[in-house]
Design a protein around this nucleic acid. Structure first.
Lengths: 255, 255
DNA sequence: GTTGACCTTCACGTTGCGTCAAGCTGTACC
DNA sequence: GGTACAGCTTGACGCAACGTGAAGGTCAAC
């Protein structure tokens, strides 16, 4: 497949000016120039552009990007692996910021006090990470290990109290769900309470909760007989009922 | 607490030049100027700066930020709520990009074909979101519904082929896991293959995959008797074995 | 053959600062 | 009291990564 500037721009979601600029600074030259002087891009350029956008997303300057991708020792496959890791890092930074904004909300509600230092925690972390991308990986290895340790700590270092709480939640969910099922209405208060209990139960296991994943799991309960069997054990249809309740709860109702 | 330019800069992780520039364009004026002409910032300015950095993080221009925070109707508490939502949106975009890079890796390994369009999926989504932040919420409501539709479509609109694939994956997982269990080594190739099959199976249900959530789910299989029962049905200890394999697979090994 | 969407090359404008330069201020130590 | 030195001030120019015309050639369609 061959592309002109506009075609490629639309494909990648960038302007034609950007493509011309990338040609000008020698970061992405077209495969060839046709007889009327038009820039024509081919398959290789599509792939290079994708790489460029990955690097750009990570905040590198175009100058740095050019050095990297024009390096004869450049290994595209390894670069992709690194993109993946750095994007995951970026997500962790985002999580820090989200934690910050949530703490700030709590502090405006008077539920918590924040020091001036804490108010900028996610931002400073971000700058550290950006420096890191410029100056190497030594620090990352340190932070990477920490992240893993934290993730493990969540489940491995569960206190007996927490474990008791999980069991309690699990039992309360079963009771509530059975009662709600009698009403037949997945939007009812009882059913919504069941969905909420299910979420709270889940959050003991997941470090990253999202409504989508929650809704996905609920659907899984219905689609996979291994889980349907459990929920439907006492009352057939319970798995589907729970799914509907959760879909309403998470706002992912059917069209 | 009172701050000079450098003190505040260090606190927030920005340069003194930036603070002077923010004063110049009227986005963050110091609380007062002391007798020698020094800028002195107080508590209110610390909080405003935090807000500014949140907006900046979301990609708004300083001009837009000024309009927002100097608006007499500006509600700091509501702004925080919106920050939270938009940061969560941003995380979803990141997840798209991560999915993209993972797909790209798979395609270089020949495990998958990617259309040129797919190669830019996460990027384009990002541009849409950025436009949205500039031009208001009407579009969001449209796209928000789309996102929900997409999420639903993922499971609701599964083709028969996909459903067959799920069943196949599920069976292959059961077989592989049983074989791997014989080796006794969760790090073995077979066990790791089982973990990978499990991931692929999961990805049919989850719109947001993360190693953490995967590891969490694995732990859940062990901690919750409802799921342990299923996996241990043929061979007791299988659930724990699968958890260990997944923890190694996701890189969340024990300390 | 002419409309209209595409392409080209200048070339200047914009944002959000970085980076001197030249000079005043504040404290600390001799 | 002198002087060193870090920290503050106001210009003012520089820079990256494009946006935004202007002026003109190209191409498929009607």
């Amino acid at each position: 497949m061959e592309y002109t500037v506009q075609k490629l721009g639309q494909l990648a979601g960038i302007s034609t000016r950007t493509l011309r600029y990338y040609d000008e600074i020698g970061i992405l030259k077209p495969a060839r120039i046709n007889s009327s002087g038009y820039r024509i891009y081919g398959q290789a350029e599509v792939n290079t552009l994708q790489q460029i956008l990955f690097y750009r997303e990570l905040g590198l300057s175009l100058e740095s990007i050019r050095e990297i991708i024009t390096d004869p020792g450049f290994d595209g496959t390894r670069a992709l692996q690194e993109h993946r890791e750095q994007l995951l890092d970026k997500r962790k930074q985002l999580d820090l910021l989200i934690a910050n904004v949530e703490k700030t909300i709590a502090s405006t509600e008077g539920r918590l006090h924040m020091s001036d230092q804490e108010k900028f925690e996610g931002f400073k972390q971000k700058m550290i990470e950006e420096n890191e991308q410029k100056y190497g990986k030594e620090i990352r290895e340190k932070y990477g290990d920490d992240a893993v340790n934290k993730s493990n700590a969540k489940v491995q270092n569960m206190t007996p109290e927490q474990h008791a709480e999980i069991t309690r939640l699990s039992e309360e969910l079963a009771d509530t769900l059975a009662q709600a099922f009698q009403t037949g209405d997945p939007a009812s208060d009882l059913a919504q309470k069941a969905a909420d209990l299910h979420k709270r139960w889940l959050m003991f296991y997941w470090t990253d909760y999202s409504p989508e994943a929650h809704a996905g799991l609920a659907q899984m309960y219905v689609d996979d007989e291994r889980f349907t069997a459990h929920y439907d054990a006492k009352q057939p249809g319970t798995a589907a009922f729970l799914r509907d309740a959760i879909h309403i709860y998470t706002g992912k109702t059917k069209a």
